[in-house]
């Protein structure tokens, strides 16, 4: 009985006093864009994720818009918002987005931002994978690779095939960058200038690191940043 009383006191106090004053959500900026039009004549998906994910958007003036249903279209390099009140898909105006974060159902987070100028990607969105002094980004590009014939009402139509074609960008301390598509030692190490090659090679050898996928790449960059600190 006494324990119940204590729990009740705790709950009551939380209820009475635990309110916080969050004006950010009350005054968050309005999302703006145009209705999204799904590109026709393709198979596959232009989207980075199969489902709508909860996400936050940061505007160029540093204000945050939270908890919206979002999807990234890697084919058109667009962030799409699902306006729940009328189920409208809205392609958001990229001029009003500085960065955005997508929260996956498994708890992992994808942080996208307008790519730094040095990456030479014409301001497209890139996902930040890891980094400090050395940074690694990935452009979640979806490209049309080949075509597929489909018969619709007796007629054969050629459909383009959407496939992910991710591009990785390494941003080095001297603000130079390099781009690669495949993750392996050869494609990452070979284009590196000598002074960086030695750093990467040293960390890979000492740490017995593999370099086959994104997780390996993130581990490598994290190790390099830890070693230069």
């Amino acid at each position: 009985m006494q324990r119940l009383l204590i729990i009740l006191i705790l709950f009551a106090s939380c209820h009475i006093f635990g309110q916080t004053v969050n004006t950010d959500s009350l005054f968050e900026p309005k999302l703006r864009g145009t209705p999204y039009e799904f590109p026709l004549g393709y198979t596959g998906t232009p989207f980075y994720t199969d489902e709508w994910l909860k996400g936050d958007i940061m505007t160029p003036d540093g204000r945050q818009i939270s908890n919206k249903l979002l999807r990234y279209d890697g084919y058109s390099d667009l962030l799409v918002w699902f306006r729940e009140e009328d189920s409208l898909w809205v392609q958001l105006d990229p001029d009003f987005i500085q960065s955005f974060t997508l929260y996956r159902s498994n708890g992992s987070v994808a942080r996208f931002k307008k790519s730094p100028v040095v990456l030479n990607t014409a301001g497209s969105f890139v996902e930040f994978l890891a980094g400090d002094e050395y940074q690694v980004f990935v452009r979640r590009k979806v490209a049309v690779r080949g075509s597929e014939n489909r018969k619709i009402e007796g007629k054969v139509y050629a459909f383009g095939v959407w496939q992910p074609q991710y591009e990785y960008y390494l941003l080095l301390p001297d603000n130079s960058s390099l781009r690669f598509r495949k993750i392996n030692k050869r494609s990452v190490l070979e284009p590196l200038p000598d002074q960086y090659y030695l750093v990467f090679d040293d960390i890979i050898r000492k740490g017995h690191l593999r370099l086959r996928n994104e997780i390996d790449l993130i581990r490598l960059i994290t190790s390099i940043n830890a070693s230069v600190k």
């Binding site: 324990r3 204590i6 006191i9 106090s13 939380c14 009475i16 006093f17 635990g18 309110q19």
Partner: peptide, 23 residues
Amino acid sequence: RHLLIFAIALMFSLRLSGAVAYP
């Protein structure tokens, strides 16, 4: 022991009630 738990609960509630929510 119950008194101790009660005191901790009260302190916790007062902490919640105080400056954090309504400075």
